[in-house]
Design a protein around this nucleic acid. Structure first.
Lengths: 151, 151
DNA sequence: GTACTTGCAAACGCTTTGCACTCTC
DNA sequence: GAGAGTGCAAAGCGTTTGCAAGTAC
């Protein structure tokens, strides 16, 4: 069994626990939405996820996907990210490390990046103004190598 | 005459030029919207600006404010900023230096911050992945000193 | 059996657009 | 006077919500 399968199983377990704790129910719809989410990579919109779920079960409604994504967010399995496009996107939330995003303005190709020095400077910056930092969002926009080659 | 007045005059000039170049027209509505924008500080939503303009002239429509804000953006007088609230906000665009934002999660108090070292590290990060950096948005979220004192 | 969930469609909030009328250049 | 700009209301978009019927526990 691959590492991926183990991870997926853990996530399913975590979601079950979360639902139980909140006295909510596991339903076939939530199951399928979770599965589709776990099987995905990158940064899906609710719409994206809806279409993937639909391939498996074309009775699931959009509203259920929206509602379930909220639950996945709350439980920490998914994490909402905002690329200033006017749609909410979600990435896997169990990534142990924080990261930011480097996004191609042409083709939307996205790289996850992390730099500890930047994080530290951000802390300093907040502290300098007396703020206690609780989080941040950083998106770098540019042109990816592939698109640059086409220029 | 204060420095502020000079700046405002320059901005009005710049907008006139922009309109002329694009073969667009200066109208009383655009004038009033520009004036309200220049007289403001911080990060206004279209709604905010609409209300301020309305205090001067209650015949101006929301659509005109939206349309004019787009023009102000295009002309560089305003700059759109996204604080992930679901509303577009605009700040003065003639600030000579780039800056990012530090936002209080409780009261929304916003500080403009800049750190050259972070900028440089961002460039490095993009370059490391072969991207040519064209821009970025960085929002730091935290609790401001005033709100911390109330805890 | 009792909540909680569902799909649907209607409502939502912000923004854009089609239109007939008005105004600037 | 030709082309742009206006206010209004309607439409558009992603998202949320009210509801009656259905389902997990």
């Amino acid at each position: 069994m691959g590492k991926r399968d183990v991870l997926e199983r853990e996530q399913r377990e975590a979601f079950r626990d979360y639902l139980a704790r909140k006295r909510l129910k596991m339903t076939p719809q939530r199951m399928r939405i979770l599965d589709a989410f776990l099987a995905s990579e990158g940064h899906l919109s609710s719409e994206d996820l809806y279409h993937r779920v639909r391939e498996v079960d074309n009775t699931v409604g959009q509203a259920t996907v929206y509602r379930t994504l909220k639950l996945l967010s709350d439980s920490g399995i998914a994490k909402e990210v905002d690329f200033a496009e006017g749609v909410a996107r979600y990435e896997h939330g169990f990534h142990d490390e924080h990261h930011d995003h480097l996004i191609c303005q042409r083709c939307r190709a996205t790289v996850e990046v992390a730099d500890e020095r930047i994080e530290r400077l951000q802390e300093d910056l907040a502290a300098k103004h007396g703020y206690r930092l609780t989080g941040h969002s950083m998106c770098l926009y540019g042109i990816c190598p592939r698109c640059r080659a086409k220029e």
